[in-house]
Amino acid sequence: MESLEKVSLESTRLILQAISLEYTEDVFREFTSEITTFMYPKPADNISETEKVIKGMIQQREKKTDLVLVILKKDTLEFLGICEVGAIETDIPELGIWIKKSVHGNSFGREAIYALKDWVDKNLEYKYLSYPVDKRNIPSRKIAESCGGKVFREFQQTNKSGNLLDEVEYRIYK
């Protein structure tokens, strides 16, 4: 596997590159309570909390356990969100993504996940990819389904904001 520090992916409209502290303000501003409605994490209370989270993501990348990438619009380098593949040291890595509210509906999430899955297919050995998502998050469910994902199990969990998530876990095979 190539060095995770150097991972940079391109698609038709996007560039995905390893997260860095350079994006702290973007993440803090865009990772809102609305964005996290159907997600496990909660938005940061202050920018130093966001910085701490990003430092943790960088440490995970250095340990080769997770790869978190910022999603940038290719023509303007506008920050659009984050996608990731976690648990890369296992045979069941997990995909995740969030896109900032102002650009929802442009299929950026789908394009980013396709680029990330292509990288995963070329660089990781795995049984299948896990893609957990709240049942009510239809756009994210459509991403998993467009990758050939099939619902394997359903479960509930309380997110860090105290809200009950009603989740399905998709399995996506090579």
Rank of each mutant, 00 (worst) to 15 (best):
Q59M: 06
P41H: 09
H104W: 15
K100R: 14
S140A: 12
Y131T: 13
G109H: 02
Y40F: 12
L21P: 05
A112F: 09
K52L: 06
V68T: 05
I113S: 00
L77F: 14
S11R: 01
L72G: 00
D134F: 08
S20C: 02
T65Q: 06
H104C: 12
T65W: 02
E78K: 14
K142Q: 12
A18Q: 13
L67Q: 07
S140D: 01
E94W: 01
T37A: 10
W119E: 07
L95H: 10
T50Y: 02
E49C: 02
V120S: 03
W98N: 05
D66A: 09
F28A: 03
G81F: 00
E94C: 12
D75T: 11
D134M: 10
K100T: 01
T24R: 11
F79E: 11
Y131I: 11
V53G: 04
Q59I: 07
G149R: 04
L72T: 03
E89K: 13
H104Q: 12
P139T: 05
Y131V: 12
E145K: 11
C147S: 08
G105A: 07
I82R: 02
A144F: 06
D45H: 09
L77R: 15
Q17K: 15
G56A: 05
D66T: 08
G86T: 14
P43F: 01
K117I: 08
I92Q: 15
E49D: 13
G56I: 04
Q17A: 09
K101M: 07
S107N: 15
N137F: 04
L95N: 07
G81H: 02
E145Y: 07
K73N: 09
M57D: 09
I88P: 03
I19T: 11
W119P: 09
Q17Y: 08
S33G: 08
I19A: 11
A115H: 09
V27Q: 04
V85W: 03
R136E: 10
F31W: 01
I58A: 00
I82K: 04
L80N: 07
T12W: 01
S130M: 14
P132T: 07
R110T: 13
M39F: 04
K101R: 14
V85F: 02
K55E: 10
W119C: 09
F31T: 01
E62F: 00
Y131S: 12
I19P: 03
S33A: 08
I92W: 11
D121I: 07
V68E: 00
I143D: 02
V120L: 07
K117P: 03
T32I: 12
Q59D: 05
S146D: 08
I15V: 12
T90N: 08
D91T: 15
F152H: 14
F38H: 13
L80D: 03
S48N: 14
N46K: 15
F38D: 04
A87E: 14
K74I: 04
D118T: 15
K63V: 00
E89T: 09
L14P: 03
V85H: 03
E34F: 06
T50Q: 12
Y126R: 05
D118S: 15
D26P: 04
T24C: 10
W98Y: 12
D121T: 10
I71E: 02
S130Q: 12
L77H: 14
V103S: 05
K135D: 13
T76E: 08
C147K: 06
V85Y: 06
E49L: 10
E49M: 11
